[in-house]
């Protein structure tokens, strides 16, 4: 995806066990923080075709 022009950081992978609740919270916070910093995505947005 990054090869294609999606900003690094917008896609993240993580492995969280069901027992690792704190890690889950940390990961979610971290991901939202990074993505918020990147701002709204301009790429991969499908706009409706304008008809006359």
């Amino acid at each position: 995806m990054e090869h294609m022009g999606i900003e690094p950081g917008r896609i993240q992978f993580s492995w969280v066990s069901s027992a690792e609740s704190t890690k889950f919270v940390d990961v979610v916070n971290e991901v939202t923080a990074t993505v918020k910093k990147l701002g709204p995505s301009n790429n991969f947005v499908k706009t409706k075709v304008k008809v006359a």
């Binding site: 990054e2 090869h3 294609m4 022009g5 999606i6 900003e7 690094p8 790429n43």
Partner: peptide
């Protein structure tokens, strides 16, 4: 950079 990549494709 990401923007150039996007435009390239």
């Amino acid at each position: 950079d990401p923007e150039q990549k996007w435009d390239y494709f």
